[in-house]
Design a protein around this nucleic acid. Sequence first.
DNA 1: ACGGGATATTTGCAAACGCATTTAAATCTG
DNA 2: CAGATTTAAATGCGTTTGCAAATATCCCGT
Lengths: 155, 155
Amino acid sequence: MNDLTRPSSLGEIGLMNYAPYLMNRIMGRYNTSLREEMVGLGLTTPKMRALAVLSVNDGLLIRELAIYAIVDPSTLSRALDQLGEGGLIRREADAADSRATRVFITDAGRVVFETLWPRMAEAHARIFKGIPEDERRAFVGTLQKMLTNIRKHEI
Amino acid sequence: MNDLTRPSSLGEIGLMNYAPYLMNRIMGRYNTSLREEMVGLGLTTPKMRALAVLSVNDGLLIRELAIYAIVDPSTLSRALDQLGEGGLIRREADAADSRATRVFITDAGRVVFETLWPRMAEAHARIFKGIPEDERRAFVGTLQKMLTNIRKHEI
DNA sequence: ACGGGATATTTGCAAACGCATTTAAATCTG
DNA sequence: CAGATTTAAATGCGTTTGCAAATATCCCGT
């Protein structure tokens, strides 16, 4: 029989039963479905993710923001330059550690993110359409376990 | 009450309950955990995905491969150039439509993908560690529903 | 059979990406 | 407490990416 803990080959499992493939494909479409709106707002994926995280969790260190936003620190640094130029975020030296910088979303930044949010909610709704509430909850529960499994950082 | 079909704000839901965020983050780590091995094999993400799909489903049209592999056609075209130079795939004019090209994985290509596969299986196992079989099946089942929801193509 | 529009793939190009390195500051060690 | 090591963020730089446009071919309606 087929032991899914140690699948013997991709062909044997089949792409359409392979969770990472399905997840990449679904996220690929989710992300591209936001792109048009993002371009209109002058956002790239890293910039959008930074705003999204900050809208929930303001004043993070850049290092922390990079983890939450799933963006390479060097890419994030440049994304923050641009967000700063546009007045959507501001950097502030950390009080305790003068190497570190905290990032805050501005009111203008919140406005931009709130403009984008309905598109994200739409894309989310389309993905979960027809999936009952308890199944959604179970799905998110499994995702949370997975994140715990692979988490390297204490975040 | 909180109607998850139309969440009112990201802050209200919380990043850690927002499926697209969790999925992006998990896939981000899955993808980077393969990168080191991929670099050693001279592969980028699009090249790896093309090989993965072809290993299961050989002889696809480039157009179809782009969809399955979740890669922009222009990016795929260049990725195939490189895979072709390395002798991992070969292009062949389609018999019925002379605009179209079919792509075939070579034996060398299979060898390369089979070298990478154990890393993919490892990453997969790490993600699903401690998640029981029935929960895995339910999770994949939900993913399949989601893919159906967002599928634009008949693929 | 012919012209207009659609489709498959490739190429031009500018922006974005991520690795490796640098700079600056904190922390550890003897 | 000096020197070595680690950590935070920014920058240099070559590669990759994806949109738009170009090219070639097909298909539809007349």
